[in-house]
Computed example of a mutant assay.
Amino acid sequence: MRRDPGVQMGAEMIFDIRQTKTGFDMEWQARVGDQDMVFIRAPFSRDCFLAEIQAKDYSQRLVFDPSDLSFGNKLKDRLSFRLYEDEKYIGHLVGNTRKERKGLFAAYPYYEYQYREALLSGYEVGFGRKGLYLCVYEGQEQIAVVEKKLSVTDFKDEYICYLLESRQYRKVIPFVIYYDTIQYGDVMERAVHSKKKDALNTIQKDLIAKFDRSFIPRVLEQDGIRPGSLKEEHKECNNE
């Protein structure tokens, strides 16, 4: 059953993505404040993964089918998630590795994301119990930071998305669903009142440098929120 995705995205640059259903079928809801923005549903399948992303004015599909060789038979091609918008193929997402200098621990993982003509990169940066972030770049410009809530109840992950420009949300939402699926999918997992904490300690200096500590305060300031006013709220969320 298709749900009404609610309001269209306006000028807001901060929104949440929360997983609302786990188990065989998975569902997520993107919300601005208490208003629904985008609804995502991934029906269970043993053969492939399909996430249907439904907004008021557009629809997307994120598809992973390892048996589909129409894009090539290299390992990278077979591991890629395909993104379609309004039934038209517009790009892919896949894990990759980058090495910018010589030395031990110089290589680090990242996510390669082709969205239409734009080439994006995503970097997972963790500071233990202090925070876990997905830093999203378009070329050399950082366009978003996605903060993962560390405390997880009943396998339902939650994210806070910070964007400098609200028009980027169409790119960011599929990225978060891809990231959540491959890193924290918990397919077929069900629980009642279970709790766990996710933590990651990044050690690669080049990877840590991808996290711009000034990015979130700049977004908060542009959105009319005093930087620091959400500090205690986020602290409580990550330590529940």
Rank of each mutant, 00 (worst) to 15 (best):
Val136Asp: 04
Gln222Leu: 13
Ile177Trp: 00
Tyr184Lys: 06
Glu221Val: 14
Pro217Arg: 05
Tyr137Gln: 07
Phe211Asp: 02
Gly131Ser: 07
Arg170Lys: 12
Ser121Cys: 14
Arg218Thr: 11
Leu163Arg: 04
Lys171His: 01
Ser121Arg: 06
Ser214Cys: 06
Ile177Cys: 00
Tyr133Thr: 05
Phe105Tyr: 08
Leu163Val: 01
Lys130Ile: 10
Val192Ala: 10
Gly122Ala: 08
Cys135Arg: 03
Phe105Pro: 03
Arg167Tyr: 15
Ser166Gly: 04
Leu150Trp: 00
Cys161Tyr: 04
Ala144Trp: 02
Tyr162Val: 09
Tyr123Asn: 05
Tyr137Ser: 07
Lys148Gln: 14
Ile143Lys: 01
Asp223Ile: 07
Ile160Ala: 07
Ala199Val: 15
Lys102His: 11
Asp157Asn: 10
Leu207Ile: 10
Gly185Val: 09
Gly126Leu: 01
Gly95Ala: 00
Ile143Gln: 01
Ser194Lys: 07
Asp186Ile: 10
Lys99His: 05
Tyr89Leu: 01
Ile208Gln: 03
Gly95Gln: 05
Asn96Ile: 10
Tyr89Phe: 12
Glu100Tyr: 14
Asp212Arg: 14
Cys135Pro: 13
Ala107Phe: 06
Phe127Lys: 06
Ile173Ala: 06
Ser121Leu: 01
Ser194Val: 11
Lys210Ala: 04
Tyr115Lys: 00
Tyr169Lys: 00
Tyr89Cys: 10
Arg218Pro: 07
Phe155Lys: 04
Asp198Thr: 09
Glu112Cys: 03
Tyr113Lys: 02
Tyr178Trp: 09
Tyr111Phe: 06
Val146Trp: 05
Ile203Lys: 12
Asp206Lys: 03
Lys210Tyr: 04
Lys195Gly: 13
Val192Asn: 07
Thr202Glu: 12
Asp206Pro: 02
Asp206Ile: 01
His92Arg: 08
Pro174Ser: 01
Leu93Gly: 01
Glu165Ala: 13
Arg170Val: 09
Leu119Met: 14
Arg190Lys: 08
Lys130Glu: 07
Tyr89Ala: 12
Asn96Asp: 14
Lys196Cys: 05
Tyr184Pro: 04
Glu117Met: 07
Gln140Asn: 13
Val176Met: 00
Glu138Lys: 07
Ser121Gln: 05
Glu138Ser: 07
Leu134Thr: 03
Arg98Phe: 05
Val219Gly: 01
Asp223Trp: 03
Gly103Leu: 03
Asp223Asn: 08
Val136Ile: 05
Val176Asn: 08
Gly103Glu: 13
Gln140Ala: 15
Tyr169Val: 11
Arg116Ile: 13
Tyr111Asp: 02
Leu93Thr: 13
Lys171Phe: 00
Glu221His: 12
Pro174Phe: 03
Ser151Val: 03
Gly95Arg: 03
Phe211Gln: 06
Ser166Pro: 08
Pro109Leu: 07
